[in-house]
Design a protein around this nucleic acid. Structure first.
Lengths: 329, 329
DNA sequence: CGGTGGTGGTTACGCGCGTAACCATCAGGG
DNA sequence: CCCTGATGGTTACGCGCGTAACCACCACCG
């Protein structure tokens, strides 16, 4: 009694039936052959004992568990990430699947090995998986479901590109023609920064504007000032900057302030994310605000839909992204 | 061959030995009874087949898996969180344990049930667990290992309190005697905000200063201005503010700017965290910088040490926290 | 030559579960 | 009265693994 968790045999004994009956009842067997009173006795006994089936036993018998492994890439994770995990967990739980998160830190068992060990039902991944891992997973008979690939409209990339286009739409609408794109220094962010850059380029091309001037914003304040000065010297025709995100934008803003550049008179600036601090800069930052809950729901829906094979009807983009005009444009 | 993953029986056949031998070799059985040439044949066969033991089978035989469930609280997670997960994963992997993360979102199977299903070795948790969950886990025979409790020096609380004390040390050292403490609005943050508040109070008491005036900083800009104005009106003697973290500090700074209050001349301000943006405000923010990697290692070490029952030798606090003096003090 | 003690394996079993195959009981029809 | 067909269960087996118990073999000693 003490410490040992109850097994289906305990439930069977308690209910006065065989173990098989317990199994049939608790799994709602398709060929329903158990009488109602018996069912109820079993359910009552299970409840009384606080019975929870052992995943190990079940996985062994079934050949696979009901675990879906969610592979998170090695990128700095923020609110969006945790909301995404939340949303995925929630919607898969509704299908009886349990989500377990694996952070792809350069340590720890590699993804395929862990997937094999857990006998997972599928591997879900927000970003495209490396080809090598994909192949290894397939070889193990594991369903790998990246939320899309670059070619067929990878969900994250699509959303990210869209943000870049919205930045350009706003700036071009205000009459700007020569734009720059401010990249973050952390190379791990390129999975997001590159598609956003693409979006900016595409939008410029669509409007017959010259290609945006790309420059990288370093991590420490003096270097930021130097980078901004270099941009002003090298590309004096630029009058507006699309920043990778609000953090980069606020760094650039700091550089402008240090150099005495008037914002937005001489240089307009727009970010992405709508972090709380974007409202508190001097001047407050214009940005493309992301509704994290809606974005996460959108991405989770795409991912989960691919799990069942079909394509999701995406959340309308207006619910996920919208322009927050403030004082830097 | 196609799709089916290899079992230890496959390895045994391949190596021309019995399954038991395979098991002994691969687990490095303590009473080493297998000859070296045989060992090597088995290891080679396992490698050739890409064998990975099934956790399900192993868990069933052992009565428990080698999984440690890391329970993450429902708090906004930042860089520290992911670094902590990384550090824990890394150090437990060294002990042959696999970390699996469960995000305590209000959906999804509750922690005790998931722990039972996975036959986990232990449940690790950064913050103290609710008593109800703790009891449920114990009843299931699962070792629950919160990284300390409030009473005996809970690791996160200790670190957090320390930050509050460091804030006061700096301000009092500069001659300030009447302090305020700026609380965040999000109630989920109280697990961190409260101990930090404690630290501030303790440090004030230790120096015979009056207790700090607490006030809450709301989420939207106009409300922030109002809150700051209220503080200035209600407690005009206050000359310095300890903010819960840099975000709160930057919000307060915005309020000061809007009200034309001179910082630091009329009001000094200090944050906690050392987020990148703290360097880019006008004026740049003085703060208690947290080295996220070191902090995560420290917390992970405490948690992992408790798993093996003993107490960790903590990382020297100077490696984790240090003062970054800038222009707001 | 019989016993004795290693050495290097093998055989046998059970962990908790799902499920195919089987069986007891009873009502109804020929 | 026997056979048939439901109905409502039960018994038996195997999933992949760890490990206790067992055994074949050989060297050595008395």
């Amino acid at each position: 009694m003490t410490g040992r968790r109850p097994t289906s045999a305990d439930v069977a004994r308690e209910a006065g039936v065989s173990r098989a009956t317990v199994s049939y009842v608790l799994n709602d067997a398709p060929g329903e052959r158990i009488a109602q009173p018996t069912r109820e006795r079993v359910l009552a006994a299970a409840a009384r004992l606080g019975y929870a089936p052992s995943l190990a036993g079940r996985a062994l018998a079934n050949g696979h568990s009901d675990i879906v492994l969610l592979a998170m890439p090695d990128v700095p994770s923020g609110e969006l990430t945790s909301r995404f995990i939340d949303a995925v967990t929630r919607s898969l739980a509704a299908q009886g699947l349990t989500v377990v998160v694996h952070f792809d830190v350069p340590s720890a068992p590699r993804l395929p090995r862990l997937a094999a060990m857990l006998s997972v039902r599928a591997v879900l991944s927000l970003l495209p998986l490396p080809d090598a891992e994909l192949a290894a997973l397939r070889r193990l008979g594991v369903r790998a479901v990246p939320a899309g690939t670059e070619s067929d409209g990878h969900a994250v990339a699509a959303l990210t590109r869209r943000q870049g286009r919205m930045q350009v739409d706003h700036l071009a609408g205000a009459g700007h023609t020569h734009l720059a794109y401010a990249l973050p220094a952390d190379p791990r962010l390129s999975v997001f920064a590159d598609p956003r850059h693409d979006g900016v380029r595409q939008a410029c091309a669509a409007r017959d504007l010259p290609a945006p001037v790309a420059f990288t914003v370093p991590g420490d304040p003096p270097a930021v000032v130097a980078a901004v000065r270099a941009l002003l010297d090298d590309a004096p025709q630029v009058t507006a900057i699309c920043a990778y995100n609000d953090e980069v934008a606020l760094a650039v803003l700091h550089g402008m302030r240090e150099l005495g550049v008037a914002v937005p008179a001489r240089m307009a600036l727009i970010g992405v994310d709508g972090i709380p601090l974007s409202a508190y800069s001097a001047p407050p930052l214009t940005t493309i605000t992301v509704a994290p809950a809606a974005a996460a729901r959108h991405l989770a829906r795409v991912a989960v839909a691919r799990l069942s094979g079909d394509r999701a009807t995406p959340v309308p983009v207006e619910d996920v992204l919208h322009l927050t005009p403030r004082a830097t444009t």
